[in-house]
Write a protein that binds this DNA or RNA. Structure first.
Length: 1100
RNA sequence: GGGCGGGUAGCUCAGUUGGCUAGAGCAUUCGCUUUACACGCGAAGGGUCCAGGGUUCGAGUCCCUGCCUGCCCA
């Protein structure tokens, strides 16, 4: 960004003349200059040696690394502001503070963006470019965005340790990935398996559930007739089953058909092309037809494959059996009028996906199931192309294999075309579908089924087509419909007790659900030490682990960490032998004739890989899921597994800062990232790390994996809100409702943005940010940030005033009388109260309270009352000068973590002022470069808190407020000095002075005023005001009457309330005595005020 | 389907173990170049705390039911 406006003379660093600061705080005049000072002083560079030498306690945050896919949005601004507040406050509190910075390579997201760019700008695909050149393109893209993101963070004022910035694919992180993979592989926790995955046929990769979204599409249910056969011996030819035969078997409704014709069952499907991969037909055992079909088979049309009829209570019973038996389509029209999906759309939630942990409940027909209306009671079973069928197929492996078929028959190529090259060989007459893409194949299947009939009859194979609207999984990145697809993938066995269950055991006991809290599960380091703020998110975390499945970590992408496994069919014996002898360098597994070798990245990897290559091994072409490297982030960024191999500056980092203190993130990340970091660190880091890490060379000597008993990556997890736009929608590029932090910084300043974001951060889970387009710049901004901008300006002007009062002369720095005046003691008491509130808020991650406390302290207490009150006395009162200076400096320090720039800019000036210290307030000087960001956190003695002083001041303040009300009501011009009539001794001289200053009172008199005076009360003190206007004009009795009547009505109302409470017999009996006393006092006061107002009304 | 939020002034939101006559900022109205600040100062108006039950001397707050709304997971 350009900082075009010339810095004003007064703001040019420490040399400028005091008191000549410009009237308004202009962020652009200061931010860049101050940032340069921070950089130059290396103010944010953490020194682990200070921790290891015992000079300071550690405080550490690792940044949730932003994806290099795009520039940062306002959600990132919030996330990073909150981290910076923690980092800066703890740094000032004396902790050696490390905020680790970095970015994430975001595999599929980045690859998809670059692929789109490539297509758009050069009109080519990545395949046309080739892997190496494509990866170079992505690398260049990453460099571009990493810089943008880093600049954004710096402009926001983030106090990261920029010298230690990492990237999830840099060599340090890559070493950690290799090592983690190797250890998990060696321990049998990484395995290769053929599984159904979410396949994106466009990007041709597996994608995770969270990389998919559901969208309703208009589709159809197709009803296919499968001819029934029987076959006693698999070697014999199958024979048709006739309706007569079925009737003899007691099949209900069989007699309605022509007895000599071949019988059939009708299956319903939305994806008819998958019938090529059918390996069974299933029926619910409760279905009355099941009995008659037992032992029979179905012959798949065209393919000719003979498949069994299975009984499984997963199968949905049809809504109406009568209709389903004969499957008479026309009768359904009345069942589902507007059958174009009207019924299902009322239940448009995604259908259950038959997860292994939660399969279909099997409780028979479910009337609410929208599918029941469409069901025939016969389910085509395609285990290789449907997750539910997959589970079903596994339950009936024997029956399926008895027919001579594999359970899993894959009929698609990776690009989504029908193919007989991927596990399907009994093509038969179905060759006419081979080579067609999914959609075309579907059409063709329907055409063929419609055109063909069952043997020896006129009944067509296609029974009916009905429109159906339903929810279908799509790929986030390509928008293609996801195909459940069978493929070879790498998995982490997170269901192992040492991974997910170990992560669950990390929760603090009080945040666990009951069945989890049994004591015997707890024991190791890291158990029971993980705490969520707000606590409710612990439940999300726990439930995620309870239902977890093994984690598919391979992605068929080019951008990412390449799977460090080499494999080959029928490896030569000398290779097998060599590999067996070098177990430190390589770990081998054999599946059938395939040999897999996982190479250890730390031991001479290049040489081993070369050797493998010579024997004919090839490296796996897949890359790892991005979260695999993210899961290592807290340790990889600090040089794990071997800081010595990382470049200089890593010594002692892990020992000093791991476990880190707090992770600060948004809630959707709990499952994706938080859990995986806990699992990996507890598995990979040594078990006794926390107790023995300070021993020399701890990492090497404790070289064993924690096996789920290791330390935590962090102790606290703070989950913050998600920012929505003014209408409660997610901010997104496509809606154009997003906000770029740099636009906010340009319009309002970084501090304004940060203050507003903090002020919005309550314990709720969503916050709204109304967005407006600035007509001048065309950029999005929000009036919400005015709050922060005004506040920064207020601080600036309070400082300006202070400078003008104290800057002109030098002041004694010692030997001054203790401040004794009411206003000074009040100010110090307010400061002490606010300081402890701020400390508490920071401890509990209560950002809104922190911001609000500072707002009230600076604006309400310091500016509105203190500064106004001291105007007449500050020039001559040296004690007061000390209070003024110290209070301002305390405010600067307390506010610095939220508003680093303006406080640093003001501090440049304020630190030049000399003044005596205030007893009870300790302000440690800056540690680096004279900068506020390295200065000590204010230590304010609790004894400065004086409730009695605050009460006295409150009384005075309400008197002043009543006088102001009377003035406003009577239209007294602001400049006019009036006279206050109170009995002798009511106000001491300092109180009297405050009233005169703050309420525009000229003189205070004990005499009774003449006509035209106005009577009023405050806290039961009766007083009169005179001299409201020139002698000639009378007081406005109408306005006064109105004011008094309203006052009386208000008091009457509260009297009624309070009397009602006291007259309630239960109240006196059961309420605490102090409460009753308080109510009595209130009642007395209200009555006195009412009476005073009545008396005033009477004289009017 | 499971889980977690939210519903308080025109708008955006506070309101900690139940206890002052429910608060703030913005917006609105009136007045003001009052020796820091109009991005300001002083004053004012504005609320059936979603609805209905219950517990209690006392409920915005705790319990139950319902309605509306958002998010996460499957």
């Amino acid at each position: 960004m350009t900082e075009s406006s010339k810095p004003s003379s007064g703001a040019q660093g420490s040399g400028g003349p005091i008191g000549e600061l410009p009237k308004q705080y202009k962020p652009a005049d200061h931010e860049q200059r101050i940032r340069a000072q921070w950089d130059e002083a290396k103010a944010f560079h953490a020194d682990p040696q200070r921790v290891l030498r015992g000079e300071a306690k550690p405080y550490c945050i690792v940044i949730p690394p932003p994806n290099v896919t795009d520039r940062l949005h306002l959600g990132h601004a919030l996330n990073n502001t909150l981290q910076d507040v923690l980092a800066r406050s703890h740094r000032m509190m004396g902790f050696e503070t490390l905020w680790m910075a970095g970015t994430d390579h975001a595999g599929i997201a980045t690859q998809a963006v670059v692929e789109r760019r490539l297509k758009k700008e050069e009109g080519i695909t990545r395949q046309q470019l080739g892997r190496e050149k494509f990866v170079a393109k992505v690398q260049a893209f990453k460099d571009e965005y990493e810089k943008i993101i880093t600049d954004q963070l710096k402009l926001m004022g983030c106090s990261c340790d920029w010298d230690r910035q990492r990237f999830t694919m840099d060599e340090v992180c890559a070493r950690a990935v290799r090592e983690a993979f190797f250890r998990l592989f060696k321990d049998g926790l990484i395995y290769r398996g053929k599984r159904l995955v979410n396949w994106d046929p466009v990007l041709q990769t597996a994608v995770a559930d969270d990389e998919c979204y559901d969208e309703e599409i208009d589709s159809s249910f197709y009803y296919l007739r499968y001819p029934l056969v029987h076959r006693d011996d698999p070697k014999e030819d199958a024979q048709p089953v006739t309706w007569n035969e079925l009737a003899r078997r007691g099949y209900p409704g069989a007699e309605k058909h022509r007895g000599e014709e071949q019988a059939w069952v009708t299956v319903a499907t939305t994806r008819p092309e998958t019938y090529l991969g059918d390996t069974a037909v299933a029926v619910n055992p409760k279905d009355p037809r099941a009995n008659g079909l037992r032992g029979l088979f179905v012959e798949l049309p065209l393919v000719g494959r003979i498949i069994p009829i299975l009984e499984d209570d997963y199968v949905v019973l049809p809504a109406s059996l009568e209709n389903a038996i004969d499957f008479a389509p026309r009768e359904h029209a009345s069942d589902a009028p507007a059958s174009a999906g009207a019924a299902p759309s009322a239940h448009h939630r995604p259908e259950p996906r038959g997860r292994s942990g939660a399969p279909h409940t099997g409780e028979g027909s479910e009337p609410e199931d929208p599918k029941a209306k469409y069901a025939t009671g016969f389910l085509k079973v395609t285990p290789a192309h449907d997750p539910n069928d997959y589970e079903l197929g596994l339950r009936h492996t024997a029956a399926i294999e008895a027919c001579g078929n594999a359970v899993l028959i894959n009929m698609l190529a990776p690009d989504g075309t029908v193919s007989d090259k991927h596990g399907w060989s009994d093509v038969g007459d179905a060759h006419l579908f081979v080579g067609l893409p999914r959609e075309k194949a579907r059409k063709k299947v329907i055409e063929e089924f419609a055109a063909r009939t069952l043997a020896g009859s006129s009944t067509t194979l296609l029974a009916e087509t009905r429109p159906y609207r339903h929810s279908v999984k799509h790929s986030d990145r390509s928008k293609a419909i996801i195909e459940p697809y069978l493929s070879d993938q790498w998995y982490v066995k997170v269901t192992d007790d040492r991974l997910a269950p170990a992560a669950n055991r990390a929760l603090v006991a009080e945040q666990r659900s009951k069945q989890q809290s049994s004591k015997q599960q707890i024991g190791a380091d890291g158990d029971g030490e993980l705490r969520f703020y707000p606590a409710r998110y612990a439940k999300t975390y726990e439930q995620w682990h309870d239902g977890i499945r093994d984690w598919c970590i391979s992605r068929q992408l080019w951008w990412g960490h390449r799977v460090p496994v080499w494999s080959m069919e029928n490896a030569p014996p000398e290779a097998i032998q060599w590999l067996g002898l070098n177990r430190d360098s390589v770990c081998v597994r054999t599946i059938g004739t395939l040999t897999f070798a996982c190479v250890n990245g730390l031991y001479n990897a290049a040489a081993v890989e070369k050797r493998l290559h010579t024997w004919g091994f090839g490296q796996d072409t897949d890359v790892l899921d991005t979260w695999f490297s993210s899961a290592l982030w807290p340790i990889s960024t600090m040089g794990w597994p071997n800081p010595q191999l990382a470049s200089k500056g890593f010594e002692g980092l892990l020992q000093a800062f791991n476990p880190t203190t707090t992770l600060c993130t948004a809630r959707e990340i709990i499952t994706l990232w938080v859990s995986r970091m806990v699992m990996f660190e507890r598995y990979l880091m040594p078990e006794r790390w926390e107790t023995e890490k300070t021993k020399p060379n701890a990492l090497a000597s404790l070289d064993e994996n924690g096996q789920g008993r290791g330390p935590l990556p962090f102790k606290n997890v703070f989950i913050h809100a998600v920012i929505q736009d003014g209408e409660g929608r997610k901010m997104s590029k496509s809606l154009g409702n997003g906000l770029d932090p740099l636009d906010i910084i340009a319009s309002h300043g970084s501090d304004a943005m940060r203050f507003t974001l903090c002020q919005m951060t309550t314990q709720t889970q969503d916050v709204r940010m109304p967005m407006v387009k600035d007509p001048a710049t065309g950029r999005n901004t929000s009036p919400k940030f005015d709050l922060g901008r005004n506040f920064a300006n207020k601080l600036w002007n309070a400082a300006r005033f202070t400078m003008s009062m104290l800057g002109a002369t030098s002041h004694p720095t010692s030997d001054i009388p203790h401040p004794t005046s009411l206003i000074d003691r009040w100010m110090l008491s307010r400061l002490a109260t606010a300081t402890s509130e701020v400390n508490e808020a920071i401890t509990n991650f209560e950002y809104s309270n922190y911001a609000q406390t500072m707002y009230d302290l600076l604006w309400r207490d310091f500016c509105d009352w203190y500064l106004e009150a001291i105007k007449p006395t500050i020039a001559s009162d040296v004690s007061q000068q000390a209070v003024l200076r110290t209070t301002l400096e305390c405010i600067l320090r307390l506010l610095h973590p939220i508003m680093p720039y303006v406080t640093e800019a003001v501090y440049e000036q304020v630190k030049l002022l000399s003044a005596a210290p205030i007893p009870g307030i300790a302000l440690a000087p800056p540690r680096k470069g004279g900068l506020l960001c390295t200065a000590g956190w204010p230590q304010v003695a609790p004894s400065l808190r004086q409730p009695a002083v605050e009460t006295d001041f409150e009384r005075l303040r309400s008197l002043i407020t009543v006088i102001r009300e009377v003035r406003a009501q009577h239209g007294v011009v602001p400049k006019r000095r009036i006279t206050l009539h109170v009995p002798v001794g009511t106000l001491d001289s300092s109180a009297a002075a405050l009233v005169q200053t703050l309420a525009g009172v000229e003189s205070i008199s004990a005499e009774t005023p003449g006509a035209g005076a106005v009577a009023a009360t405050s806290d039961a003190l009766k007083f009169q005001l005179s001299n409201l206007r020139d002698a000639a004009s009378a007081a406005d009795s109408g306005a006064e009457r109105e004011r008094l009547q309203k006052l009386i009505a208000d008091h009457e109302k509260s009297i009624a309330t309070l009397e009602g409470r006291l007259n309630n017999p239960g109240y006196a009996q059961k309420a605490p005595p102090a409460m009753v006393k308080q109510t009595q006092d209130q009642l007395a006061k209200a009555k006195a005020e009412r009476d005073a107002a009545k008396a005033a009304l009477a004289v009017l």
